[in-house]
Design a protein around this nucleic acid. Sequence first.
RNA 1: GCCCUUGUAGUUCAAUGGAUAGAACGCGAGAUUGCGGAUCUCGUAGUGCAGGUUCGAUUCCUGCCAAGGGCACCA
Length: 598
Amino acid sequence: MFYHDLKLNIQDLIRQAVKKEIGIDLDKIRLDLPPSPDLGDLSFSCFEVAGRVKQSPAEIASSVASAFATSFARGYGRSKKASADKSLVPRNDTVKAQAVGPYVNFFIKDDVLFSAIISAIIEQADNVGDSQLGQDQEVVLEYSSPNTNKPLHIGHLRNNSLGDSLARILKSQGYKVHKVGVINDRGAHICKSMLMYQKYGQDQLPADRKPDHFVGHFYQMFEQKMVEDSTLADQAKEMLIKWEDGDPEVRALWKKMNDWIYAGWKVTYDRLGNTFEKLYYESDIYQKGKEVVAQGLTDGVFYKLADGAVEINLESENLDKKILMRSNGTSVYITQDLYLAELRGQEFPEAHKFIYVVGMDQEYHFKVLFSILKKLGLEQNFYHLSYGIVRLPSGKMSSRAGTVVNADDLIDEVVGLAMSEIKKRTDEVNSDLAESIGLAALKYYLLHVAPRKDITFDAERAVSFEGETGPYIQYTYARMQSIKIKNEKLKIKNSQPKAGPPRAEKLKVILNSDEREIINKLGQFPEVLERSAENYDPSLMAHYLFELAAIINSFYHEHQVLKAAEDEREQRLMMLEAVSIVIKKGLNLLGIDAVERM
RNA sequence: GCCCUUGUAGUUCAAUGGAUAGAACGCGAGAUUGCGGAUCUCGUAGUGCAGGUUCGAUUCCUGCCAAGGGCACCA
């Protein structure tokens, strides 16, 4: 029996007990993990029931506990003797109920708990935690959205980590996820770098410089030169007009520089392991919102101002008025998002949910956008996954002052730090391992904070092998693999037959309280994953993995595995196997590799 | 001026209205011929302020204070 079914059974019996003793029907029954393993494996709190009847939670807990035992006995075979202690009724020892104050705590028999959680996880293997919650539901997930005038920066790293992890989490819950990106490849800011290259680039090639950094260098140059020559802003605007007119020379320059950018980005995205199903280029869509505007006018959702500009009044939604088309007939930023939403609605007709992973500074923009889309009759579910900014311990970053940390430098820094940690411990120089650990450090640090909170990124702390970090969790995994390998070697040495994975049915399972704690923690994995998906929040999974890693490290400090008596050893090896599976899967959901050796 | 978000230990983060507010780093003390000490054990210290709702509030509501973001015919 799976843990999930076991819980359903217990919930059902609680429902019956409450009905019988208290006389009310409970719809949902929440089972929590008690604060300490000594208090049981699951608990039901009686406050809510107490609120509905005139009885104290403790009284309710007490009567539910004894009624539970009776109904449990009826359902699972009648026990022979009644217990003297009314709160603890061991009529059937598969599940015992015990009232403690306002709580009913449940104790599950060792072998049942072990089999329901450990054996089940080993059986499910890579599919552990997967569900069909989102079956037949399609999600379009937009993230990254960089500008083609500079390399990816630290903010994109958070954005990409969130987007990529969320995609993995949603997929595990059965959603069909389409990962898409929008490339901001046009506009005055793009012309700034183009103008500088035209003036000062002398047809140079990026040579051995990373080509996106090469382009970004000219963008930074613009800000510096502006100090001396304030006409540069107008020159950039003139260039934009030429670009819009299709001037061959400007277009050629634009294409050349954008190609450099794409080549540079590709290296970064590849390194991060990031891919998109589809990319939308702003240059293709920026003018195409006009049909949407026209339709809105026809439907009376928008109105025209005296000078010909088109506007919508959202004051009834507690928002302001918003211009959607300029008096000269050109569209604004939000117009293209309206168009994109309609376009995606056609391209993904089955999609019911559209998620935009975009920084918190655009919260107002998306409120306005979603409000307009609703008025236009688009009934899909739109969601802005808003996240806070990434700061450095040294202080604020400024694009103008060139103190923005670009993604490549940051990745190099964390990988470099990982490498020096490796060198401290071994003479072996393993650059693949350093890459893996560095990226784990980076991604974990960016994901372990709830999305809407700002992050202060501290590279030293992120790469530290101590504390709540990616490398610590990777270490925990590698250590378990090491024990597993050692066990296999021992078996060979003792010429024992390789009998395949141990089976719980053959074991006499006896659990100590540390093992119960670990097993119950493992049992929570599917719920944590589900909550991460429902809340669009990978940080829940990140914290969970750290907690699991911490208790397993603590465990084999206290208890022997390979030197334990045979049944105990097999039982513990199975438990480690289950923990390995869950940690590997959890790391994967965060976009982090589990390494076999460190 | 208006709107949104965030205020938890020295620092970085947790806590679906419920059991004693948990971790990590730092600091202090300890464990090492160990199934990987890249670990573990113990100690240290906290809910911005004032009200309210509730049996119960870090969580919900109101006001204040502080930080950040937004309110373009910019993107």
